[in-house]
Amino acid sequence: MSMVLVGRRLSSDEVKSVTDDPAAVETLIYGDVEDDDAEMPDPQLDLDKSWHGIHYALTGTAWQVGLGAGAAVLGGAEIGEDNGYGPPRLISAEQVQSIAAGLRQLDVE
């Protein structure tokens, strides 16, 4: 097993839910594991194992988080439990705007 990156956009109610109770992040990621009929939430972004190469291309480092585009993969605040590969991360709306501005400045060269 290896680390993969999946992402979801959260509504303001969902953000409030996980900031008020970080344990609620598990339900947002995995759905209601107690309900056998419940479906797992669909990720809106699934980088699978390519996340680390993308992070390196944006930052030139294996693990350091930069500003702007450099926070696109490993940025944000840790929230919830670490289930073996690090806890989930929450990127604020302001951070998303900064990341988007940084990504717009990149060119193919």
Score class of each variant (00 low, 15 high):
Val6Gly: 12
Gly80Gln: 02
Leu103Pro: 00
Gly102Ile: 03
Ser11His: 09
Val15Phe: 11
Asn83Leu: 15
Thr19Glu: 15
Trp63Gln: 07
Glu34Gln: 14
Asp46Ala: 08
Tyr85His: 12
Ala71Glu: 08
Asp37Pro: 01
Gly53Tyr: 10
Leu67Lys: 07
Asp107Phe: 06
Leu74Asn: 09
Lys16Arg: 15
Glu109Ala: 11
Ile91Gln: 05
Asp46Val: 10
Tyr85Lys: 10
Ser2Met: 15
Val15Asp: 09
Val18Ser: 04
Leu67Gln: 12
Asp21Pro: 00
Asn83Tyr: 13
Gln95Trp: 02
Gly66Thr: 06
Asp82Leu: 01
Lys49Ala: 14
Asp46Trp: 04
Glu78Val: 05
Ala72Trp: 05
Glu81Val: 07
His52Val: 08
Pro88His: 07
Ser17Ile: 00
Ile91His: 00
Asp36Pro: 12
Leu106Thr: 04
Val25Leu: 02
Asp107Gln: 13
Thr61Gln: 06
Pro87Met: 03
Gly86Asn: 05
Asp42Lys: 15
Ile54Cys: 05
Asp48Arg: 13
Leu106Glu: 02
Leu10Ser: 04
Leu28Lys: 08
Ala57Trp: 05
Asp35Cys: 10
Ser17Tyr: 09
Gly60Leu: 09
Leu5Asn: 04
Gln95Thr: 05
His55Arg: 00
Gly102Tyr: 02
Thr19Phe: 02
Gly76Ser: 09
Ala38Cys: 08
Leu90Val: 11
Gly60Asp: 10
Gly31Asn: 06
Gly75Ile: 04
Ser2Arg: 15
Val25Asp: 00
Pro87Ile: 03
Ala38Ile: 15
Glu109Ile: 11
Val18His: 03
Thr61Met: 01
Pro87Trp: 03
Asp82Met: 03
Gly86Phe: 10
Tyr30Pro: 03
Arg8Cys: 09
Gly66Leu: 08
Ser50Gln: 12
Ile29Thr: 04
Met40Phe: 13
Glu14Gly: 06
Leu45Thr: 12
Gln97Trp: 01
